[in-house]
Amino acid sequence: MRVGIISFAHGHAYSYTNTLAELEGVKIAGIADENENRGIKAAKQFNTKHYLKYEDLLNEPIDAVIITSENSNHYKHVKAAAKKGIHILCEKPLAHNLKDAQAIIEVCNEHQVILQMAFPVRFNTPVMKGKEIIDSGQLGRLIAIKATNRGTNPAGWFADRSKSGGGAVIDHTVHVVDIMRWYMGAEVKEVYAEVGNLISELNIDDSGMLTMEFDNNVFATLDCSWSRNKGYPTWGDVTLEIIGTNGTLTIDAFGQKNNVYNNEKVYWDFWGDNMNKKLIIDFISTVREGKRPSITGEDGLKALGVAIAAYESSEKNEPIKLK
């Protein structure tokens, strides 16, 4: 199978491509990146060809493409790939706005290509274990979920609203809303959010606290802030506290680590499973077997809808109903 990558604008591209390089029967067909320096460097690193124009990469005989460009370029890149009948793994969020997200789903349907969302947290082993525990029914009826997905302001295009669609809220909400939907098979009915630009000098939201009401009578909150500072021992987290009538469940997706105390810095050395790798393996097997993707474009759209509604809520200081 020949797989291409469009853009290394999103840092996840490195981890995804690393996995492609390890997989048997997969060939990295090339890397398209309009940022020439970045593209040439990446192509060299992965021993493949750099294309300045993504159209040129898509003209090659490839089966699938991973799109890790800026959020605002997802539609352009998805459309071009879909028209060539190339299957797609799209980085999250699906797009920087709902209009593009809708169009992405439509164009993939129209051309009958697989569109999978890159929500790697679904493949995090402790998070998967959590799904198993919930499905077993041992927690009883679910009441609430308290979640965090904190991080650090990535700056660059992430802090440019025209390219990203927003800051911490759009960047981190989608991961956790996807997990909550997956855990419960329920949809968000209403969202309230307090959003702020309280931490970084960059003019973009970096603090966000969402409260959600699901259609199964469960409520949830999510702290999606880019609130980890330079001295913090790790980049961020994904945690879930699930409350049921018969018990509670606490998931710390990146809690498997050693604490390291070096003279220069203190950090957490993670030794858990590589969720990005598991995501890529899943996508490749989906393409190979022509399956329905484990995480669909609709999943991406639903998660994005919550983030967009959160912004609206924070402007109006009132809860927003989802359509």
Partner: peptide
Amino acid sequence: RVYERLEYALVTLR
């Protein structure tokens, strides 16, 4: 929401 002997609340303050 539930009638078991428990209570749980999540609050956001600005």
